[in-house]
Computed example of a mutant assay.
Amino acid sequence: MGDVKQSRRERAQETRQRMVAAAYRRFTEEGYAATPMDAIARDAGVAVQTLYFTFRTKGELLQAAYEHAVEGADRVPPHLSEWWRAAEEAPDIGTAVRLFVAGTITVFERAAPLVWAVLGDENARKSYEYNDGLRRAGYERAIAFLTAKHPLRDGLSSTRARDILLVVIGPQLYSQFTRDLAWTPQEVADWMTVAVLEQLFGVSVGDDQAE
């Protein structure tokens, strides 16, 4: 009996993941408002009633798509991931920033297309603002562990440092570089690393191993 229940749970989880993946593809390709629920259900191979039974509203489905993009296949929030932990444990500010940027770029490769697709869509504003709030809170954690390794440059508050981080390491900027200007993710990561070290810590690339 237990195996049967487990099998049902696994099938339900697989179906849910299929619906979320279909929603992510549709939202990123066509936009949130322009995507009807029946099209997502058709792509996922389920009845539209199943889609509504699972997510209740289109907004809840969008949130699930955000989480799918940010957490990845392992469903691990960024601040609990291995790359975040490695950045926290790095011995110097240069290494910490490089690891933090590299890890964030892996998230942006999945999440930035969705952020770009819903940006400015009033129908998706609530979900966008909620998730941007999570990113803001995450960057506040990042500022805390980074400043434990090296002080911020003179006159820069932790709040302003967080604000700069939100823009410099942001999905919008990542999308502009990669989508519009044809930069590679590694080129963007290199630029972001230099920008963070210089703008937040006053550390140039040549001496980014400063204690």
Rank of each mutant, 00 (worst) to 15 (best):
E10N: 12
E60N: 15
L119E: 12
R179S: 12
A137H: 06
T54S: 07
A111K: 05
A41K: 07
R153V: 01
L200S: 00
F145I: 00
R25D: 13
V20L: 02
P77Q: 04
G94Q: 00
K5I: 09
H68R: 04
A137P: 00
A144D: 10
G72Y: 09
A148G: 11
F108C: 05
W191H: 11
Q6P: 04
L152A: 01
G133E: 13
V167A: 15
A96Q: 11
T28M: 00
Q186S: 10
A210P: 05
K58M: 02
A189V: 06
V194R: 10
Q176T: 15
G133A: 08
I40S: 10
Q172I: 11
R26N: 10
L134Q: 13
T193E: 12
A137M: 08
E30W: 11
A44E: 11
A195I: 00
E211Y: 07
W191A: 14
R11W: 04
T159I: 11
A148Y: 10
W84L: 07
V203C: 06
Y66W: 15
F27H: 05
E30M: 11
G206C: 03
F145D: 03
A44W: 04
Y174D: 06
A144H: 10
A69C: 02
E187R: 12
S175I: 01
R136L: 04
A41M: 06
L156H: 04
R135F: 12
M192D: 11
R160G: 14
H68W: 14
P91Y: 02
M37A: 15
P171K: 08
A96E: 00
D163H: 09
R16P: 03
G59L: 04
P36D: 11
V188A: 13
D38Y: 15
L119G: 02
R110A: 09
Q209W: 14
W191L: 13
L152M: 01
L156Q: 11
S175E: 10
S204N: 00
D43T: 06
L62D: 01
F177N: 10
R98Y: 07
Y139S: 06
Q199Y: 04
F55M: 07
I164Q: 03
R9A: 13
T28Q: 04
G31W: 10
S81Q: 08
L119C: 07
A189L: 01
W84M: 12
N131P: 05
E140C: 04
P113W: 11
L51Q: 05
A189F: 02
E140L: 12
A102M: 00
A161T: 04
V194K: 03
R135G: 01
A124D: 12
G2E: 08
P78R: 13
E29H: 14
Q199E: 08
R18Y: 02
A102N: 10
A21N: 08
S157N: 03
N131I: 10
E82L: 11
A22Q: 02
G202K: 08
Q176H: 15
P185G: 04
S157I: 06
L62K: 03
E140R: 13
D208V: 06
T159D: 15
G170K: 07
D190T: 05
L114S: 07
V115R: 14
R162F: 03
G170W: 03
E187N: 00
R85I: 13
K5P: 07
A142S: 09
D132F: 15
A34F: 08
R162S: 05
A144F: 03
R85Y: 10
D190M: 01
M1Q: 07
L114A: 09
